[in-house]
Computed example of a mutant assay.
Amino acid sequence: MDRKLDHLKIEGKDVELLPEFPVRFACIEHFDEELDDYVNDFEAAPDTYRADLIEDESMDKRCRACGAPAKIALLKEKGM
């Protein structure tokens, strides 16, 4: 599930994102595959966080590959 945003709350902090890069979620089993896909699709390594640290309850935090509850969020922070 891709979602492009310009900021997110992570652990109570407002984190600025590069809006041209999506926020994606992955379970542990599919993390390596999702990481490879992100790098291949956007030619940039994502920043990673535990999915439960993302404080946006409207986001679909399921693995793109299998639909299981996500454990890892892949995104691109501004200035990183």
Rank of each mutant, 00 (worst) to 15 (best):
D60H: 07
M1P: 14
D47A: 11
G67R: 04
A51N: 04
L75N: 02
D14I: 05
L53I: 10
M59H: 07
D37N: 14
E57G: 12
D2W: 09
A70Q: 08
G67M: 01
K9W: 06
F31H: 14
A45Q: 12
K13C: 02
D14S: 05
K78P: 02
R3F: 04
D60W: 04
P69S: 03
A26G: 13
D37E: 14
V39A: 02
S58M: 04
E16D: 02
F25C: 08
Y49S: 08
H30T: 13
A44I: 14
E33K: 14
K61M: 09
I72H: 12
C66H: 06
D14T: 08
D56M: 02
G12M: 02
C27T: 12
C66A: 03
E55A: 06
D41Y: 05
G79H: 04
E34H: 10
H7F: 04
P22K: 00
H7P: 07
D2E: 15
G12A: 01
F25S: 07
E34R: 10
L74G: 12
I10R: 04
H7V: 04
E34G: 11
I72F: 09
E16F: 01
A44Y: 05
T48K: 09
P19Q: 01
K76S: 00
I54Y: 01
Y49C: 10
E57W: 00
K76I: 01
L53A: 11
L35N: 12
D36A: 15
A70L: 05
A65D: 15
D14R: 06
T48I: 15
D47C: 12
D52S: 09
R3P: 07
A73W: 02
I10N: 01
A73V: 13
A45H: 11
P46R: 08
E34C: 13
A68V: 03
A73R: 07
E77H: 06
L8I: 13
D6K: 05
R62G: 10
G67D: 01
L8K: 03
R62A: 10
L75R: 00
M1Q: 11
A26T: 12
E33P: 09
L8F: 06
M59R: 06
Y49E: 14
D32S: 15
E55V: 05
R50G: 14
I54R: 00
